[in-house]
Write a protein that binds this DNA or RNA. Structure first.
Lengths: 185, 185
DNA sequence: CCAAGTGATGTCATTGACTGACATCACAAT
DNA sequence: ATTGTGATGTCAGTCAATGACATCACTTGG
């Protein structure tokens, strides 16, 4: 066995979720989180840039997988088709994550302005990443931002619906359904 | 003359803008701002909840005026017509503010992630306020959020265009133009 | 098998945002 | 003249965040 228990970052994430849920975001100190994870506060900041980011770790991967799917979409697919591919690709990201965990995490975010700020900027980053990806596919400059914006909207709505019903369809199907609804508008 | 110079909040705002522009947001301490405004740091926090908010003071008024205009719009106006009225009402807000000031402020926000976060949540608040206003006008629950979202998009695009050209049209006209473009989509 | 890394962590000190409690004092109201 | 009241100052304290340096299990070249 190594000198330290492995996966300090994972332990910090779990500790943070638990404590934020118990005492609220403001009622929790970084030292509290670090203690529960069996490390020092200094180590917390080696794994996460700040107290908020611990709840958003992995969001880069989500973005990357969507951007990759966008790039890999058939060359003859239209902008919204390509975006649909990207959003659908996000689904596999949640395969490893219990829906209940996602729900509790989202409840926390919705209840905490500081965390909502962080989430909004993540979504903005996702939007501009998708926009960039669309432009690289040759999509017109006035269409790309709109399509990206729409894609992120589909993602958010689907995610919200997915976590709202513990026994509902898997997220892929929710996304498919949302995309279908979109077409009828 | 009173015991203190009047309008401490105003002086703090100006000092903050100047220092953020000179040294950047991170390179400026609240004590710096307070010093330049001739007060103590404690007083800064009596006027603004945090170091970011000093650049967003007045945003409540902007939101209020838009919500009010929305409520006062003709009863027979459709959702998007009412939203258009609200967005146009935002224009008078900028009559008192030099365009150049708005531009420098926006440059600062765009260059500072922490300030971008704050701006995003302000926009989100505006969107939900407009949504609420639309619902109170009897707009259908599935239409209201979309119309509100669109209205805020029009506002943002117009504002961006307005500050990008120092000698361009007044903001009312930019908004009108943006709304016209929107109809052609 | 040993010596020189290397990486993840701990320790310590410091800055700066933010808050609560309490004091002060020009001015207004009575 | 007395008594608020409101805006500010003062002071002490908590906590997020960062830099500098130490430690030590484990790896790697010789």
């Amino acid at each position: 066995m190594g000198r330290w228990e492995p996966d300090a970052a994972g332990r910090l994430r779990e500790a943070a979720m638990a404590l934020y849920a118990e005492r609220g975001f403001d009622g929790t100190t970084v030292a509290d989180i670090a203690d529960r994870a069996g490390v020092t506060a200094r180590t917390f900041f080696r794994h996460f840039t700040d107290k908020r980011e611990v709840l958003f770790a992995g969001s880069e991967l989500l973005e990357q997988s969507m951007v990759k799917a966008l790039a890999d979409a058939p060359a003859d697919a239209g902008p919204m088709e390509a975006v649909a591919v990207a959003v659908l690709a996000s689904a596999e990201f949640f395969d490893d994550i219990p829906r209940e965990y996602s729900r509790r995490r989202q409840d926390l975010i919705n209840a905490t302005p500081e965390l909502r700020e962080r989430e909004l900027i993540k979504m903005a980053a996702l939007t501009s990443a998708l926009t960039k990806g669309l432009l690289e596919r040759g999509v017109a400059a006035d269409v790309a931002p709109l399509a990206a914006e729409t894609g992120v909207a589909v993602f958010r709505v689907s995610f919200e619906r997915w976590i709202s019903d513990p026994d509902g369809e898997p997220i892929v199907d929710v996304i498919r359904s949302t995309l279908k609804t979109l077409k009828t508008l």
